[in-house]
């Protein structure tokens, strides 16, 4: 039942992007997202799209796979576009019943659609080429300065990585409990909203109890293996920048500079 969520799930293969330090990819993705708002012209978007195309090529992830993931959020994209299309005030160019399309709206909607698509594609390139573990490691490393202001950086990263590990387990469990309750005559397909919410109780209560039991067990198992927070821990897979990561940072910098130049020129 949860099979349809493929958006941005790690795609196992070997490529330059896969081998890049996750911190570079994280910083790069942020830089790219910002650049989408920096450039504000057709040539600018062309540049951003071109950059993305090169990244997709470098990632070795089949384009079809990436697009298939996009399908799930197509709906969201259409809604946003429609909102912008019909709800932006300005010069009316087309009218039907209560819907009024304006020139400004059309302009804005097209821009928004391009921006959103690039944004989603751009960030999914990161998640497609980076395992969740690497991602949390990168986050922990990049947020380290925040430790000085007492943000529990290590704990946050640990929590994220445990959550990621248990999501598939809890999904499987949901499926099992659901089947068991269906066997007891439960009806999860009711269209009536109140009935639907009520029917969730026999699913959610056991699920929460199980989650708490697992959390309890896991805490004990971690303690038994000498876990006592981030203090004094070493790393099995420490993050170390290599020369290709430096090159990647340089390319990013150039791209970003080009975006700013675009903004000034056009």
């Amino acid at each position: 039942m949860f099979d349809s969520i493929t958006l941005g799930q790690y795609y196992q293969t070997d490529s330059v992007l896969h081998r890049l330090d996750p911190r570079v990819k994280l910083v790069g993705t942020f830089a790219y997202l910002i650049s989408l708002f920096v450039v504000d012209s057709l040539p600018g978007y062309l540049l951003a799209a071109l950059f993305l195309a090169v990244m997709i090529k470098l990632s070795n992830v089949p384009f079809r796979y990436i697009v298939r993931g996009m399908k799930t959020i197509l709906f969201l994209l259409i809604i946003t576009v429609c909102f912008n299309l019909f709800l932006t005030p300005g010069e009316v160019i087309w009218e039907f019943w209560i819907f009024k399309m304006t020139r400004e709206g059309l302009n804005f909607a097209i821009k928004m659609a391009i921006r959103l698509s690039l944004l989603i594609l751009g960030s999914s390139i990161m998640t497609l080429t980076t395992t969740p573990t690497q991602l949390t490691d990168a986050l922990e490393s990049l947020m380290r300065p925040l430790k000085k202001v007492r943000v529990p950086v290590h704990e946050i990263a640990m929590m994220m990585s445990i959550a990621l590990r248990f999501i598939p387990i809890l999904m499987e469990e949901t499926d099992k409990i659901m089947k068991a309750q269906i066997a007891r005559g439960a009806d999860f397909e009711s269209r009536n909203l109140i009935k639907k919410i009520k029917s969730m109780v026999p699913l959610l209560v056991p699920l929460f109890i199980s989650a708490f039991r697992r959390a309890n067990d896991l805490a004990m198992a971690m303690e038994a293996r000498c876990y006592r927070g981030g203090e004094g821990r070493t790393k099995m897979k420490p993050l170390v920048y290599s020369s290709k990561d430096r090159v990647a940072y340089l390319i990013l910098l150039l791209f970003f500079a080009a975006c700013i130049a675009m903004r000034i020129l056009f």
């Binding site: 573990t133 590990r165 387990i169 198992a221 293996r225 000498c226 876990y227 004094g232 099995m236």
Partner: peptide, 22 residues
């Protein structure tokens, strides 16, 4: 299920040694 911490087998085995600073 409730005692494996990492998402990759080798990383889970490394969890204990990491904790004791190897």
């Amino acid at each position: 299920d409730n005692q494996i911490i990492a998402q990759v087998v080798e990383e889970d085995v490394g969890f204990g040694p990491e904790n004791i600073g190897v």
